[in-house]
Design a protein around this nucleic acid. Structure first.
Lengths: 142, 142
DNA sequence: ATGAGTGCAAATAGTTTGCAAGCTG
DNA sequence: CAGCTTGCAAACTATTTGCACTCAT
């Protein structure tokens, strides 16, 4: 069980404080679970980590949406069409090498957003977003 | 209606010939439709283009899968979780700026596969694949 | 108390699977 | 004529929506 990162925790808490979001008991538990993750995880896994087996998944999804809306969480797309979720420093974002089996993820310290966004704007695109993920089988899952 | 690209057509045909896939009437129509596309499109749109409104979507999906298996077609993931499809030169692949409204897509002449694959393999990952797409609203859809 | 958060049920979108029947090389 | 291809129906996964109820601030 990984340690939670104190500075991520405080950054995220600060952002939550200054947001209109309400910190309910369930959200607190979900947040705690997210803080202990060392990799992006699915809504189902996050609910388990939060020890909220009775809680409807819709609540987890809505919490993910809420956290994402204030920039403290990002979605990681999977090949299958599903998603994983992870906390981020407010406004930050990054990409991964993700094991398609166990979801082990290594962070990719490389993002072309600046470059891509510029190119996109040259083409007249607005509201630009992007995804980039690398999938494979990690050593343990081979 | 865009012209089909003759050299893409012949490259794709060659690959089909040397494959175990059967070229049925439906597949031929689907292939023709794909050749006229100037952007990736959805399974539903492709069925329409192929003038096969009666054909079950499952057939379109299976054809996409078959074409992808011989490296002449690639899937483009959407933010929504759905996919678009497009023909590619055998074994090739590329990324896009995709309008999330109308699916207009500009090709992105930039792929980090070499670099990313090397990094992934250094991490012990195998069977590496990756996605990279840029989404936005194109000038017409704003 | 007021509006945000939650649960339940149901719907949705996109895609996949199983199996019997039809066609192609 | 073997086996790939197709259709139909059904299942499926991940996620979303509507609405009434509950709770946090």
């Amino acid at each position: 069980m990984p340690e939670s990162n104190p500075s991520l925790q405080s950054a995220v808490n600060d952002r939550l404080q200054s947001s209109p979001l309400r910190l309910t008991r369930k959200r607190t538990k979900i947040l705690d679970a997210l803080l202990t993750l060392d990799r992006p995880e699915s809504a189902v896994e996050i609910r388990e980590r939060a020890e909220l087996p009775e809680t409807d998944l819709v609540t987890v999804y809505r919490t993910m949406e809420a956290f994402e809306s204030i920039g403290i969480l990002q979605k990681v797309p999977l090949e299958s069409g599903g998603h994983l979720f992870e906390l981020i420093y407010p406004g930050d974002h990054h990409h991964h090498f993700v094991c398609r089996e166990c979801h082990k993820a290594e962070r990719l310290e490389l993002c072309l957003f600046g470059e891509l966004e510029k190119k996109a704007k040259n083409l007249g695109f607005v509201k630009v977003a992007h995804i980039m993920e690398i999938y494979g089988l990690c050593p343990e899952c081979q």
